[in-house]
């Protein structure tokens, strides 16, 4: 693919995505919240914070104070610092999982829709199977068999979410492959891959993108849930890990409330953004 074409496509995507955003206060709120999380995740090493791993015997389960705004956990580690550092892994994991889901879903769905027939039947059944399997149970199995390393977890969370993206991509490809400009490009000599990736998907993939944004929130929640059950990666700081730690000192509310609020805010941010993108990008008759 030529760089100029892909660049102009990306610009179109951004332009369509930003259309009317100024009048959309919830979408704008979601975008601002998400950007703040991104800024925190990128700049957290430069903040004047306690080392999130540093243990201090004097501060064990210290309640919130000027010194420790969010208190300290059972090892005397600063929760404020841990929550901010947790942004990194939680956001990265959510985005990685959603992107995995997007690519797998888009490829499987669009090939099923494009080639149709027997291949479509097989793939649609395959997609249905993935929709049916309870996600958490599958992930517990994966954690037990493969381990809990955080980036593997992101990958596997993504691999349990792609089915909805695949369904959207398939439906979109089916409607767009009959359009005049696709037929015209075929006549002009474009091959299957070119038609699919340069003509059909750039037109039809938008609804899958809003779905993917919503899946970021979903992935973050899934990881938090797994970590809460003790199936997370103990070597990184995630919000789910902090809450899991809180189980050991059940009366220390600050070990649950602050990371819990962070999860809620991040999920809210991606939901607001996803809903607003969905309104903007999904094809419909009335706008």
């Amino acid at each position: 693919m030529r760089r100029s074409v892909s660049l102009s496509n990306t610009l179109t995507l951004v332009r369509v995505g930003m259309r009317d955003l100024r009048g959309d206060k919830w979408g704008l709120t979601g975008l601002c919240m998400m950007l703040s999380f991104v800024v925190i995740a990128l700049l957290v090493p430069y903040f004047p914070l306690y080392d999130p791993w540093e243990q201090s015997g004097a501060d064990v389960i210290a309640p919130p104070s000027w010194n420790h705004p969010f208190g300290a956990d059972i090892y005397g580690r600063d929760v404020f610092s841990r929550v901010l550092w947790g942004t990194r892994v939680s956001l990265g994991l959510g985005v990685l999982a959603a992107l995995t889901s997007f690519f797998v879903g888009a490829v499987i769905g669009s090939f099923a829709g494009y080639y149709g027939g027997f291949l479509d039947d097989i793939m649609t059944r395959f997609i249905d199977v993935f929709i049916i399997i309870p996600r958490v149970i599958l992930l517990i199995l994966v954690a037990a068999l493969i381990g809990t390393e955080v980036w593997y977890m992101a990958l596997f969370i993504g691999l349990t979410m792609w089915a909805s993206t695949a369904r959207i991509a398939r439906a979109q490809v089916i409607t767009f492959k009959e359009r005049g400009f696709v037929k015209a490009a075929a006549l002009l000599g474009a091959g299957d891959v070119r038609l699919l990736f340069l003509h059909i998907l750039p037109n039809g993939i938008y609804p899958a993108i809003s779905n993917t944004t919503l899946q970021v929130a979903d992935a973050i929640m899934t990881e938090a849930g797994l970590s809460f059950f003790g199936l997370g990666d103990k070597n990184v700081i995630t919000w789910g890990q902090i809450i899991n730690m809180g189980m050991l000192s059940i009366s220390s509310w600050w070990l649950v409330v602050f990371p819990g609020a962070a999860i809620a805010l991040m999920v809210l941010a991606f939901n607001l953004l996803g809903d607003s993108l969905e309104l903007r990008l999904k094809p419909r008759l009335l706008r």
């Binding site: 100029s4 074409v5 102009s8 496509n9 179109t12 359009r179 005049g180 400009f181 696709v182 037929k183 015209a184 490009a185 006549l187 002009l188 000599g189 474009a190 003509h199 750039p202 037109n203």
Partner: peptide, 29 residues
Amino acid sequence: RWKQISIVFQNAMNALDPVYKIKDLLKEP
């Protein structure tokens, strides 16, 4: 096709891919 025999389509709006600029559409053949 196109190099020796080409075709002008019936409905121009439907035959032009909406996500590409005119210059990119013309470059495609």
